[in-house]
Simulated scan of single mutants.
Amino acid sequence: MTRALLELKDVHTHIGAYHILHGVDLTVPTAAVTMLLGRNGAGKTTTLRTVMSLWRASQGQVSFDGAPVGGPGTRVSAPDMARMGIAYVPENMGIFADLSVKENILLAARQAKNAGQLDTARLEWIFGFFPALKKFWLHPAGKLSGGQKQMLAVARAIIEPRRLLLVDEPSKGLAPAIVQNMIDAFIELKQASTTILLVEQNFNFARLVGDHVAVMDNGRVVHAGNMAQLAADDELQTRLLGLSLGSHQ
């Protein structure tokens, strides 16, 4: 059985007076894509933010590569997470609007002090998926379209090899052709042994990219298994998600 790179055991998260996660158990196997699915408000984004220590787990434990990184008495900071090889792409993209595309990428490339030190081959590989970033390389990121900002957010996360990617709805706002490019990018990252935990509302995207799946409802994981098996079972999809993948292809 594939070793887990990320594990959450009985994780609870409170945000102010609100109890959002109610004992999340989640296993993210190494060198594969795990889809985190569920209705709006199920707790998916809170799970990603809890892993990144942006919100503190009030109970349970988050472990990365066998070492505790989150939970009562254990909290690794988000910058330390980045140094461990974990990258997070939030739904709000988290780009720097006043900086150029080039400057945004350079900030994310920890090994490069200037653009000349960027990995040219990897940058061209990214441009192959997201050509708009090359076109607007010197433009302020704030002037990009919503879809282009989403491309930039993902590009920032993958400008250097990462051990784990946490990505919240990467296809949101993208044209169909760019969605396909995004799918191709994640497949190639997986083939390069990157572990990915991916929240996505585009169910065809989930079917094409995912190896494993966890479905959340009301702050808990209510189903975990093989993505292909879920994609082939319309009845299970409807019961867990309220609709079938086949109606969204």
Rank of each mutant, 00 (worst) to 15 (best):
M1P: 13
M1D: 13
A4S: 14
L5D: 07
K9F: 01
D10N: 14
D10V: 01
V11E: 02
H12Y: 13
I15E: 01
A17V: 12
H19R: 12
G23T: 04
D25F: 02
T27I: 14
T27D: 14
P29C: 05
A31Q: 13
A32D: 13
A32L: 11
A32V: 03
T34Y: 07
L37Q: 09
N40L: 03
A42W: 08
A57P: 12
Q59S: 13
Q61D: 00
V62C: 09
V62K: 01
F64M: 06
D65T: 04
G70S: 12
P72N: 03
D80C: 01
A82F: 14
A82W: 02
Y88V: 08
E91F: 00
M93T: 14
M93C: 15
F96Q: 04
L99P: 01
V101S: 05
V101Y: 05
V101Q: 06
K102Y: 03
K102V: 00
K102D: 12
E103G: 01
N104H: 04
I105M: 15
L106C: 10
A109K: 10
Q111R: 15
K113M: 05
A115K: 09
Q117W: 06
D119L: 03
T120L: 12
T120G: 13
A121H: 12
I126V: 13
F130V: 08
F130K: 05
P131V: 03
L133T: 00
K134W: 01
K134D: 12
K135C: 00
K135E: 15
W137S: 09
L138S: 14
P140R: 05
P140G: 02
A141F: 06
A141T: 08
A141N: 08
G142E: 06
G142F: 03
G142W: 04
K143V: 09
L144Q: 08
S145R: 07
G147P: 08
Q150N: 04
Q150K: 15
L152Q: 03
R156C: 14
R156P: 11
R156E: 10
A157L: 02
A157T: 10
I159T: 09
E160N: 04
E160T: 12
P161V: 00
L164W: 11
L164R: 04
L165Q: 03
D168S: 06
E169V: 02
P170W: 01
L174S: 11
P176H: 06
A177E: 12
I178A: 07
M182D: 02
D184T: 13
A185K: 02
L189F: 07
A192Y: 00
T194E: 04
T194S: 11
T195V: 08
I196S: 07
I196M: 09
L197H: 07
L198P: 12
V199L: 11
Q201R: 09
N202I: 01
F203Q: 11
F205Q: 07
A206E: 09
R207S: 14
V209E: 10
D211G: 06
A214E: 04
A214F: 09
G219A: 05
G219W: 08
V222T: 13
V222F: 04
V222P: 11
V222E: 10
A224T: 15
N226P: 07
M227T: 05
M227W: 05
Q229E: 15
Q229W: 07
L230P: 10
A232P: 05
D234M: 07
L236S: 14
Q237I: 03
L240G: 08
L241N: 11
S244L: 00
L245W: 13
G246V: 02
